[in-house]
Amino acid sequence: MGVAGPNAVVDVTGQNQYQTLSWRRIVWRRFRRHRMAMAGAILLILMILYTLGGTLFFTEADANFNDTTKMLQPPSLEHPFGTDTVGRDILARTIYGGQISLMIGLSAVIVETVVGVLVGALAGYYGGWIDSLLMRFTEAMFTVPQLFLLLVMARFFSGKVPELQLLGRTFSGSVVVIVGIIGLTSWMYLARIVRADFLSLKEREFIHAAHVIGTPNLAVIVRHILPNTMAPIIVSATLSVASAILSEAYISFLGLGVQPPTATWGNMLDRAYNYVESAPWMWVFPGSLIVLTVLGINFLGDGLRDALDPTTVD
């Protein structure tokens, strides 16, 4: 049975070592048995395999090789996903673009979630001046349009970031800057949501009980309240992966981050703007890959949430 939860009041009285171990085992067992979660995990692994395994068949040069005489060709044997506006192979581009998009999407969400949960939890739990300070800061961040930060950063960082080597490819170091920007400009919703849950949960009986027996604040936050706020955190993280992949394209368009001709799912989708009707293969493939990735993460998240749910009777 769970350590923390409204119907776990009697359990919070100690026996930590044994409880934690069995809790982990329970979570893992629930997760393993969760069909949708396993499907989600498999889907995600497939996505990662697609972007990594695909490199065995195509080189990065293939992904950027253009032949204008073969532009905008519909899917064929030679180009299973068709070609884009300068005759590049869309299949190869989804493979190499996927590496970047998955990397940016996932890491930006980690940044966002960590900051959002941290700010929200501290503000909600401690209240008072900590809450005032953190929430006023959150409001200030809200009022600054992302566009401004991006434009300023684009100027500040353009051509000044060293390149990095990853997966045998060379990236502009500003990919890291992009992850930072997306993460640091999108945590405010999550922070407010987590704070609201904390405001409510910290007044529940089981938390008061934890205080009474002298549980340290950090333990109360991490072990007792946080597991009860997992649901919105997971939803927020899932949704943010899609937003991050899409906003990468928009940010790169302002001159920072992934520069053409390097592909990403986001910029491939963006380039389909004027071809929605005339060349649907330009958006169908990168679009579907994004949807599949997000669905995978969603099912995984659902499973994780169910497994972690302290109120579920096993």
Partner: peptide, 25 residues
């Protein structure tokens, strides 16, 4: 539930310009 989930993520993963242009066309 699964169908709704799938559809809502398709909607969420598409850029708005796409939805707007398709509906206009």
């Amino acid at each position: 539930d699964q169908v709704i989930t799938a559809f809502s993520f398709v909607g969420y993963s598409l850029p708005i310009f796409f939805v707007a242009l398709v509906s206009m066309t």
